Amino acid sequence: MSLGQKIGRLRQERGLTLQEVSEGSGLTPSFLSRLERDKVNISVANLRKLAQFFSVQMTHFFEGEDNQQVGQMMRTSERIRLSLDEAPVQVFALLPPNSDLEARLIEARPGSGQQSFSSRGSQMVLVLEGVLNFTLGDEEYALNTGDTLFYRDDVPNSWVNTGTTIAHVLTISVLSGREDR
């Protein structure tokens, strides 16, 4: 896979538009489009801007898929933030892209929460620390530290941190029917 294709794939995996990457990296949308189609080359300085925007090491763009080790480790400092810096709910990816699993660490301030509706597959929620009120359709669950909830991710769901401290939550999704595979 070419450098441009890797950049394009990373952008698409994150659900970002060329305009959003442009605004975050300082590179023009037209340049990014040509880069993804391998029509232009990129300087080290501009590649560094993209690496910083995507929160990856520059070597990420050069790692070959054929020579990967059996195991892949992601250090705390390498976690990809999937939320805005000042958002009340911080979400971090815990696994590399293109996995059959999606694992996220969520840090939620008291009173904050999220709503979701998708049909990605099945999901497990483990409250590492804190208290959550979790709603699945018409059902409500009070989750405390150490509690686990498992459900099919094809019903509307939402949760809120009802505690007085930051809640730390691990979510793991088994992805079904990935279209990009």
Rank of each mutant, 00 (worst) to 15 (best):
residue 163 G to K: 00
residue 79 R to I: 06
residue 82 L to E: 10
residue 92 F to R: 02
residue 30 S to E: 04
residue 83 S to K: 06
residue 84 L to S: 15
residue 42 I to C: 12
residue 113 G to R: 00
residue 18 L to S: 09
residue 12 Q to M: 12
residue 169 V to Q: 08
residue 139 E to H: 14
residue 178 R to G: 14
residue 166 I to K: 07
residue 131 V to C: 14
residue 101 L to Y: 06
residue 173 S to G: 08
residue 124 M to R: 03
residue 151 Y to C: 10
residue 141 Y to L: 09
residue 12 Q to K: 15
residue 61 F to R: 05
residue 55 S to L: 07
residue 86 E to H: 13
residue 177 G to D: 10
residue 147 D to Y: 03
residue 70 V to K: 15
residue 90 Q to Y: 05
residue 42 I to Y: 05
residue 80 I to P: 00
residue 127 V to D: 05
residue 36 E to Y: 02
residue 25 S to F: 08
residue 4 G to S: 02
residue 149 L to T: 04
residue 180 D to V: 05
residue 113 G to K: 05
residue 164 T to R: 13
residue 140 E to D: 08
residue 63 E to I: 10
residue 62 F to Y: 12
residue 175 L to W: 04
residue 51 A to C: 04
residue 95 L to I: 06
residue 178 R to W: 03
residue 23 E to V: 07
residue 56 V to P: 02
residue 123 Q to R: 12
residue 47 L to T: 03
residue 12 Q to F: 09
residue 57 Q to T: 08
residue 28 T to I: 08
residue 48 R to P: 00
residue 5 Q to L: 11
residue 153 D to P: 04
residue 19 Q to M: 13
residue 31 F to P: 01
residue 52 Q to L: 15
residue 98 N to Q: 13
residue 123 Q to M: 13
residue 53 F to N: 00
residue 6 K to T: 11
residue 95 L to V: 12
residue 85 D to H: 03
residue 146 G to M: 02
residue 55 S to K: 15
residue 68 Q to A: 09
residue 57 Q to P: 00
residue 60 H to R: 04
residue 21 V to R: 08
residue 142 A to C: 02
residue 156 P to I: 02
residue 136 L to S: 07
residue 20 E to F: 02
residue 111 G to Y: 00
residue 116 S to K: 13
residue 169 V to K: 08
residue 178 R to M: 14
